[in-house]
Write a protein that binds this DNA or RNA. Structure first.
Lengths: 232, 232
DNA sequence: CTGCATCCGCCTCGATACTG
DNA sequence: CAGTATCGAGGCGGATGCAG
């Protein structure tokens, strides 16, 4: 029962003593997407084993990374603490690295819309934010999240907005195919694997924000072309 | 022998399939510091087990993260590939998170100068780079590395420079104490745990670069106070 | 029915011994 | 020096049981 430790006075080893064991970071991934109940975590993590999940949650709570919280009505659930939320950057950085590792055979694995959302979030490049205020609503397998661009900064949040500049609908696997550069977004549109509603000129800006389109940054400087419109 | 996999079509899970097993990220940490020979890795990772180390190295080579290389004279050794070097950001992000987790009792663990170097690198904040070109040479337990500030950008590299603005000498544990904010750098100077040679006015700029000093950013704007000096 | 705890087979881990 | 071979202990994964 004594927790295994690397026994090193090193920031990285200390971090791994907390989140380095099997399944732990994937539990945190799920809670980075949204708070969850125990059964939801079990479902999102096929193969985890009920005892192991309970153990991990307990360790994360003791480490101050996760706390109990009300999810849905008044059932028991879990959410990240401030300290756990601080893992978003490290986790997104790892996911960004992993996007380049996605093998073709991995496509036979499990997929959820939340993972596509996290992949999009990992791709957002604050150095490529367009000079217009607008927002891109995404409907991935009927789970909705939105990227809001305002004042030169891009943010992502769950749920819809009233007046999205464009609404992009697709499925999780397609979105991950695109994010991992195995599928060209324009080809995906042509194949009807992705549909877009709204101002068509926002699409290249959206793709450029994710680093998926445009060798140069000339699209981001088209400040005048689409100014003063809906956006939230 | 079949590698265990999470079986998820998710960038994070894919990354963890490659670097998520026990010891793997710590091996990468060592290679991020510098190329190593097999025996050096064994020594830097107490408790790893020779077979496991060989297994992990083999897996990392198959994944294209590590390759064999000449280290020192003409002995066999290992270094990161370009793909492995791309793990620097995720690993530093995790270390940055871990710096806040360092417990007092962790100080009984093993320490090496390389880990202190990585801690310093994790703390470097490109938004706090001073407006002067200078460089800070660090001597940690007789291992030397240097932070070079030029053109508004800070870089770190192993080894000395000819004309450091300041030279900071200390031991690894003290440096990690400071980086994890358990020890005030000024107090460490007073206690002789750290010694500084060179232009004393560079010290607050150095500490501010690491986010260890100064509540505001007024030090970074002191462009005139220390312009046009050595610093290579 | 959800949220776990218990039990069990297996595989990974970690230590030691051994070989090219 | 750079690993391979071996083996006990324990973490992991799956099935089942039970309490709120």
């Amino acid at each position: 029962m004594a927790k295994r430790s690397y026994g090193q006075y090193c920031a990285l080893a200390q971090a791994l003593d907390v989140v380095g064991e099997r399944w732990t970071i994937l539990i945190i991934r799920e809670l980075l997407i949204r708070p969850r109940r125990y059964a939801e975590l079990l479902q999102a993590l096929p193969g985890v084993g009920t005892n192991l999940l309970a153990d991990r949650i307990r360790q994360l709570m003791e480490a101050g990374v996760v706390r109990a919280a009300d999810v849905h009505d008044r059932r028991s659930g879990y959410e990240l603490t401030t300290r756990g939320e601080a893992l978003r950057e490290p986790v997104l950085a790892l996911a960004r690295w992993g996007l380049e590792t996605m093998t073709e055979q991995a496509r036979s694995g499990h997929v959820t819309p939340g993972w596509a959302q996290l992949g999009v979030e990992a791709l957002i490049d604050q150095a490529r934010v367009p000079d217009v205020d607008e927002c891109y609503m995404m409907n991935v397998d009927d789970e909705i999240f939105t990227i809001v661009v305002s004042n030169g900064h891009a943010r992502i949040h769950r749920g819809p907005v009233d007046q999205p500049t464009i609404t992009i609908s697709t499925d999780a696997m397609t979105m991950i195919d695109i994010g991992s550069r195995k599928l060209d977004p324009i080809a995906a549109l042509a194949d009807q694997r992705v549909s877009v509603i709204g101002r068509a000129d926002a699409m290249p800006r959206f793709l450029h924000l994710l680093g998926l389109y445009g060798p140069s940054s000339h699209l981001t400087n088209a400040r005048q072309t689409a100014a003063g419109q809906a956006g939230r």
